[in-house]
Design a protein around this nucleic acid. Structure first.
Lengths: 347, 347
DNA sequence: AGATAGTAAGACATCGTTGTCAAAGATTCG
DNA sequence: CGAATCTTTGACAACGATGTCTTACTATCT
């Protein structure tokens, strides 16, 4: 009973293979009676259409490729930094692919490699996916975008603050930073520090804008010396915290560019015997497990990464089912503020 | 220049398509001169063989499927529990697939579903992968194993303490638990508690055996009341800690079944004002990011998950390249002890 | 009733590779 | 030197689905 093909089903149901194909693909022009007979044969034989043959036959590939940044992924998985943005993306995409009968392939690309265009093109032409999901910072790389466009494969850019080709799915980073800053201001903080994110990501810039906007709206001056560059790494966060915390006029609250940075701030604060939230309020972005289980748990903005990925898949599958054309829409998903014990009114 | 196929390459190099195929697959019977000409054509056209056609042509699929437990994955990714075992598996497998020109597909299966056998069979027959990687607890499920065997697809079971079909790649859980316990005993601890792992995983049992063996070897009695069942979750860890820590004769050290359990113990200890490592030493398994960045960082056994996955891929690719037969070997990889600030001599 | 239009089902070519087998050319051997 | 063997290359079928086109039948209209 190995290798059941469409021919076996056709024989068993006493119809042509084309009719079986029609039933499998839910095409309308099949009489209910035949449809039922075919379905019964499919169930009895345990038939599942072969994805390779489907693709070759001129149809869809039922494959979606997610291009992730190699360096980021390495940091994420190899050194266990706990940035699980990519994991959550994958989770959301995978669950949704399952629903549509699709399969998700994760491929790593290295933006700094000289082979970048070649690599992207190679992956696309071996796999010929029905759609591609790009995550930061790939989704803002001109070489990658160009390669995708030339291959004429629909793609969705996730979490990109930049307008451009393909569809977009993201949260409003600026609004999120603004809300977070407002929260601190509402608690009574007047001096709020900000450890900025990596310049490789446009979202970092958007977060900074939100921070500035919130302060401006509250009528508070922006003390430029309270803005310290971070790079999304633990070490960067330590350096930034060491610049901010020993100051006599240190801020009463700090907004960290991401969770890892925040944990670094916590470590430095602990070393300097600065209590959180007693002496210092701390808020951050991303809401990874480390900051939910930390002592104290941190106030964060929860980015709906899985939901974004799910929507990306929906868009791509819909495009593939239709005409392969994808609208260039910009889909904004709502974020969530998780208020936890790390933020409190200043002493 | 879209959709470059083997025919285009053949025309450009003025050879038959079969010869191009030979060059692409590194078959020996091609003269160096022709090989070079063909390679030049491939490079110039940017040709990449279509995976679907390859599979259909009777060859390999260049696909490896990893079956992960749906529930675990959901906990891992959705609720951000920080169990990144699966992530690290994926990371190791993906990097290695890349080297071999393979692609990794992650599929979720639900052991509790009545459709389990059907689901596995369905995935295998649509994708027809060259090999399958099973992670706990799937790798010990008879239904899954049976379905794999029937499909005659080579598979590797990762991290399984159980003998059985297919190849195995794992670390020695018992030895790891033993080493960790020995470390605590060497520090001078005489009363070592153990929050056991989930009974769904045979490895939990092996860890308990290692714990007992270490105590026995040190001539210490096993106080059964110091063995508390956990289930690998934070809540389970809290319950266990609440059973162990308020006791007047509480242990001076605790071995946690996994990192999440350990974090739970930390939270309870903090609440009860029990200092770590001053009043209580704490050691655990897995070495996820949360416990490296926690305060204090925890002593753990580092499981070589990525390396295990890489080896699994190597085994599967080698089998596919040869005759599709996979040896039933049991490959043990060395673990690593990460000694950190959470363990110290008792007061 | 006959012509027309519309619908359901099937025949057949096709996608891009690899496996099989045959042919051509090179080499070895008696 | 001719036959036998080995090596290199190519022709062609096959894989398992879908797209296109055709055919057979049914319903509709005049």
């Amino acid at each position: 009973m190995r290798n059941v093909t469409i021919v076996h089903v056709a024989e068993k149901a006493r119809v042509s293979v084309k009719t079986v194909s029609r039933v499998v693909n839910n095409e309308p022009t099949v009489t209910p009676e035949l449809r039922e007979r075919v379905q019964a044969a499919i169930d009895q034989l345990g038939y599942a259409p072969n994805i390779a043959a489907r693709r070759l036959g001129g149809g869809r590939s039922f494959l979606i490729v997610a291009f992730n940044d190699r360096k980021l992924t390495l940091e994420n998985w190899a050194s266990d930094r706990g940035n699980n943005w990519i994991d959550r993306m994958q989770y959301g995409a995978m669950l949704r692919c399952d629903v549509h009968g699709y399969h998700l392939l994760c491929e790593l690309i290295d933006l700094e490699s000289g082979q970048l265009a070649r690599r992207v093109q190679h992956v696309l032409s071996t796999l010929r996916p029905d759609g591609v999901i790009l995550t930061p910072p790939n989704c803002e790389d001109p070489t990658v975008l160009e390669a995708l466009k030339r291959a004429q494969i629909p793609f969705v850019r996730m979490g990109s603050a930049q307008a451009g080709p393909g569809a977009r799915v993201r949260m409003d980073d600026q609004a999120a930073a603004r809300r977070l800053t407002e929260h601190l201001v509402e608690l009574g903080h007047r001096r709020v520090g900000f450890v900025t994110g990596s310049a490789r990501f446009l979202a970092s810039r958007a977060r900074e804008d939100g921070y500035r906007a919130a302060l401006a709206a509250a009528g508070l001056p922006v003390d430029e010396t309270l803005l310290v560059p971070g790079d999304f790494t633990f070490e960067g966060g330590v350096a930034a915290a060491e610049a901010l915390l020993p100051r006599p006029d240190r801020p009463t609250a700090i907004l960290a560019g991401n969770d890892e940075t925040a944990l670094a701030v916590m470590h430095v604060a602990r070393r300097l015997d600065i209590a959180i939230p007693g002496d210092l309020s701390l808020a951050t972005f991303d809401d990874t497990p480390s900051v939910r289980l930390s002592l104290p748990p941190l106030t964060t903005v929860r980015q709906p990464v899985a939901e974004m990925a799910a929507q990306a898949v929906d868009l791509l599958v819909a495009a593939a089912a239709k005409d392969g054309k994808l609208s260039r829409a910009d889909n904004l998903l709502p974020f969530e503020l998780a208020l936890r014990a790390s933020t409190a009114p200043p002493r």
